[in-house]
Computed example of a mutant assay.
Amino acid sequence: MSESVSLQPLDQFALNDRLANYGDGVFTTMHVSEGRVGLLSRHVSRLVNDAAALGITVTATAIEEVIRTAMQQQQYGVLKILLGSGQGGRGYSRPGQAAVSLAVSWHAVPALYETWRQQGIALAVSPVTLAHQPLLAGLKHANRLEQVLVKRAMQTMDCDDCVVTDANATVIEASAANLFWFKKGVWFTPDLSKAGVNGVMRQFILEHTEHVEVGEYHLRNLYDADAVMLSNALMQIVPVHSLVNAHSSEIHEYSLAPVKALQQSLAGAYKQECIRA
């Protein structure tokens, strides 16, 4: 596929746009403050690498230029970039000469995230489970119907966010964030080789944190944890103060202290990865 990139507003998709019709593309959402983009290089790499996994070729240089252009509009907020496979015919197959397209939008940072980072949040377990698809696992692809169903189910639940599992009750992630928990001096996080999104904040935490184990874990591991936290590029690191047991309705309560300590220990490294485009 061509490396040429065309910038198009989100409200002007063509009727045959493959991103709108099939979710044939990838995206990322970046936290921007004082003209600096949090985890900028990781976001660029995500778009390049996730697009390549879908057979879409785009260069880091092209994406960086799009970000620089967008930064001329404002210096604070959430910058979202959608990268798609261009326009095509009625069917699923891509046309041979389709051009890569990029769509950019600005949004407000959710105000509640700051409160969440300080006070923690309550979790429940989503009744919606994730399917296994190793070819898409880890990618931030634009076909997110599973997450739409998770968020819809949350509307009837008394919680701030949900733990999402696969059909085998293996823990995968939260509704729009990655999941970590702490037990006896060790952090744990789910393996995402079958389902889930490998978030840029998750990558950052894994790179800068000692004693983290990645593997397949059951809900019982969460119930038995000393501390639990969520992470993504916008909320960064958010502690969890409680989780409702999916089977007994028992409320498991967690210490915020290990999460607060990790927030503080990573603050300097995070600041170093907040870069002007």
Results as ranks from 00 to 15, higher is better:
82 L>T: 03
199 G>W: 08
160 D>F: 01
12 Q>P: 02
79 L>I: 06
54 L>R: 06
274 C>Y: 08
120 G>F: 08
222 L>T: 09
69 T>N: 09
138 G>P: 00
16 N>Y: 02
188 F>R: 11
227 A>S: 15
112 L>G: 05
250 E>T: 09
120 G>A: 06
197 V>C: 10
110 P>F: 12
161 D>W: 02
3 E>K: 10
192 L>V: 13
91 G>K: 08
76 Y>T: 14
140 K>T: 01
256 L>C: 09
204 F>T: 07
102 L>G: 12
111 A>W: 05
190 P>L: 13
239 P>A: 07
144 R>C: 02
116 W>G: 07
15 L>F: 09
192 L>H: 01
212 V>D: 06
59 T>L: 01
118 Q>Y: 03
265 S>G: 09
249 S>G: 01
225 A>M: 00
68 R>V: 06
47 L>I: 15
62 A>K: 13
244 V>N: 05
94 R>L: 14
50 D>A: 11
228 V>A: 00
48 V>A: 06
135 L>G: 02
72 Q>L: 14
201 M>T: 13
139 L>P: 12
211 H>C: 11
179 L>Q: 02
218 H>L: 14
42 R>Y: 10
1 M>P: 08
169 A>T: 12
45 S>I: 05
6 S>N: 10
7 L>Q: 05
186 V>D: 04
250 E>L: 04
246 A>R: 15
179 L>W: 04
186 V>S: 05
167 A>C: 09
8 Q>N: 11
15 L>Y: 12
264 Q>G: 00
216 E>P: 00
274 C>V: 04
29 T>H: 04
194 K>D: 11
63 I>G: 02
